[in-house]
């Protein structure tokens, strides 16, 4: 579904991604783990069209998308839940969800979609008229995920969804990711919580200094001694 080949990108004179090759098969969960500054967020921002591709190819369902603008990528079926949630704080929860469906505002299924979504995130149900900025961290994470789902993506990019959340909420977020995936949406998950991410994912990639250093099925990586030492703290 998503095939990235030899991807290079960066900011200004600094090249951050130095040739990333990665695949996310349809309906699967892939995870990208790595330390701070390894290029995880830059990778997702490049996929979303916020950071420009300098070299390499990105194919989504066979279509080249490395030159598409961010809105074109959303229309293609890829949305992102960015690091730090980045919900619109001065807009209501309901408005945030509406904007998630911005590219398909004319669609008639929006109401139904929103109802389905609220079944998935019941915490948001009676907060629809609240300003998003007044939500708790956990609720904001739900909202950010809900907003990204309103575009009906076929691939969801998640950047550190568990960051800054209490352990109980971390469990919830991972359970939700699994449920979203069960609806047929492929997931690319970027996480510092490598243990949980690898447990959940079908396939994992380890990124170091802008390059993929290691890859394999999630379970295999969990038992890999190199990974254990560097990312799982054993």
């Amino acid at each position: 579904m998503l095939e990235v080949t030899d991807l290079h990108s960066g900011y200004g004179k600094i090249e951050i991604l130095k040739g990333v090759t990665l695949k996310v098969p349809a309906g699967s969960i892939a995870t990208l783990i790595g330390s701070n500054g390894a290029g995880k967020s830059t990778f997702l921002m490049t996929l979303s069209g916020i950071v420009r591709v300098r070299k390499g190819n990105i194919l989504f369902e066979g279509k080249a998308m490395e030159k598409l603008p961010p809105d074109g990528i959303v229309k293609l079926g890829i949305t992102q839940v960015p690091e730090g949630r980045r919900i619109f704080p001065h807009l209501t929860v309901d408005e945030n969800l509406d904007l998630g469906a911005y590219t398909r505002s004319l669609s008639k299924d929006l109401k139904k979609d929103k109802e389905e979504l609220l079944d998935l995130f019941p915490a948001l149900k009676n907060r629809l008229t609240n300003l998003a900025g007044n939500l708790s961290g956990g609720e904001q994470q739900m909202l950010a995920m809900g907003r990204a789902l309103m575009a009906r993506p076929r691939l969801l990019l998640l950047d550190e969804p568990s960051l800054g959340l209490a352990p109980k909420l971390v469990e919830l977020v991972f359970a939700l990711i699994k449920r979203i995936n069960e609806r047929g949406i492929a997931i690319l998950l970027v996480e510092q919580n490598a243990w949980k991410a690898l447990e959940l994912a079908d396939y994992g990639y380890v990124i170091e200094s802008g390059r993929i250093q290691l890859e394999g099925p999630g379970r295999d990586l969990l038992s890999n001694p190199q990974i254990k030492e560097a990312y799982l703290g054993e």
Partner: peptide, 17 residues
């Protein structure tokens, strides 16, 4: 709504399309 979203966070606004 899009105007208010842009005023809040331009990059996040791009991410929703």
């Amino acid at each position: 709504k899009a105007m208010r979203a842009l005023a809040d966070d331009r990059e996040a606004a791009s991410l929703v399309g």
